[in-house]
Design a protein around this nucleic acid. Structure first.
Lengths: 160, 160
DNA sequence: CTTTTGGTTCGGTATTTTCAGAACTAAAAG
DNA sequence: CTTTTAGTTCTGAAAATACCGAACCAAAAG
């Protein structure tokens, strides 16, 4: 039995954030767990605290947490002499996983190139536009990581 | 009855691209239609050609095409003295819709700021990391459109 | 060895999503 | 006015998904 309680405001915010995540392709319960870990005053929660605060079953908690760890949205740490895991939102590493996601997205060019290669040469305008799009994505896949590096540097300077 | 035929290779490519789209949150059939419009030698297809080439019903074709037009993934034009609509992939505008999607994503900061504002001040490290993440997204939402503008300009210069 | 803790795995149900088919419609053609 | 064309809308079935509860398991505590 956890002694943590959520205020009405927190509960509402969790639902609203959950909807946002859902609209971006994340499962409802996974979205709620992520939101909980950001909204809740405690920066870390155990399996059972999550389960009780959201009022869900162990199986749902288990599979959602495992998926969230697979997708790097959630991390956990352990404490000496304590068998429980303490789960936390991975905002710390979000910048990185954010850029990793971009990289993954840029894979679209592979299939696009394949499609372009097998196209008839009788539609030059269409093919030119496809080539241009491929170039754009390639441009981004170079420029975007640079943007990230610049931000890192700028942020480091600020700290000193 | 359409006289267009797809090769085995084209069919396979359509399925593979379809899966890719599906993994990025697009409905299976919508993904297949988009792929078809890119893979097929004809840069434009009619309602009925799409329906026949994919072997799907009119209702499915109708709702999928309407959704794809709503999301700006597909456009159509008409021809004088012809009641049919000729559908095409909107790769021309993809660069733009791509960047528009980014803008929409950046809305995450609104909810994040709200969540940060209501947090306890007793977790300074956690709050600092959240603030840093928000700053990062704000940085991107400024820098990314600039990147896009630069590409547009570079591309225009190349054409002249 | 037995019990408790901190989960995982399995099987089933309820909900949601995806699609087909039939009935419908508005505009053009005959 | 009737028929054809080019779709749209509605209903329902099938498939996929999300979730629960119960059984299970491995490590630690008693």
């Amino acid at each position: 039995m956890t002694n943590i309680q959520l205020t009405q405001d927190q509960k509402e915010l969790i639902e609203r954030m959950g909807v946002f995540y859902e609209q971006h392709g994340i499962q409802p319960m996974e979205g709620r767990i992520m939101s909980l870990l950001i909204v809740c005053d405690e920066p870390e929660l155990t399996f059972d605290q999550i389960r009780e605060l959201l009022g869900i079953s162990k199986s749902t908690t288990s599979s959602a947490l495992n998926m969230l760890m697979l997708t790097k949205h959630v991390i956990y740490r352990t404490k000496p002499g304590d068998r429980k895991r303490y789960f936390a939102s991975n905002i710390v590493q979000w910048q990185q996983s954010f850029t990793e996601n971009f990289q993954k997205f840029f894979e679209v060019i592979k299939i696009m190139k394949e499609a372009l290669a097998q196209r008839t040469s009788e539609t030059p305008e269409f093919n030119r536009q496809m080539a241009e799009f491929i170039e754009f994505i390639e441009y981004l896949s170079v420029e975007f990581p640079r943007l990230y590096q610049e931000w890192l540097q700028r942020n480091n300077e600020k700290k000193q």
